[in-house]
Amino acid sequence: MKAIEDNNGQEQSGWALADRQRWMGILARAACRDLEAFLDQLPDSGGYDFLRLPEIGLSMVRGRAGGTGDPFNLGEMTVTRCSLRLADGTVGHGYIKGRDKRHCELAALFDALLQRDEYRQDLFARLIDPLEKKWLEKRHERSRKAAATKVEFYTMVRGED
């Protein structure tokens, strides 16, 4: 992790935008019960206030056929978002698919904690990396099961005469 400059030209220490995108994605894909279980092991973070209570809405998912076609609206999906602020002023945002408000709240809380230098390393080691591993295994398992059902089609050359 390296320090980067954000759009305002201010230096952020400790984490880069890409890191945050990664951990927010992992938190969003994690199961709520895993986050909840981890919360109990966490040293006291001093509480937090909501800036935006968890709220459920829709987000348009856009697609592009074959990676080269024109973008089209694939459909809307349910999204829950939430923002909160730790006692020291750090702001965390959570955006998850579905309508689990508690999951969203926890995602925002961990997003805020991960921005703080004293929590980041520990959280990466004990929460983010294991969650990512778990998610990758699950995805691999699914694609392996799907791959097992693959059927090879081929067509014999058909002579008309």
């Binding site: 954000d6 759009n7 305002n8 201010q10 952020q12 935008l17 206030d49 909501f50 800036l51 209570l53 709220e55 602020r85 002023g89 750090t90 702001v91 921005q115």
Partner: peptide
């Protein structure tokens, strides 16, 4: 982003 976020204050506590 991080530093300006610090200034963000809450709005309505019960938005509806």
């Amino acid at each position: 982003m991080k530093s300006t976020d610090m200034d963000l204050k809450p709005a309505f506590s019960d938005p509806v």
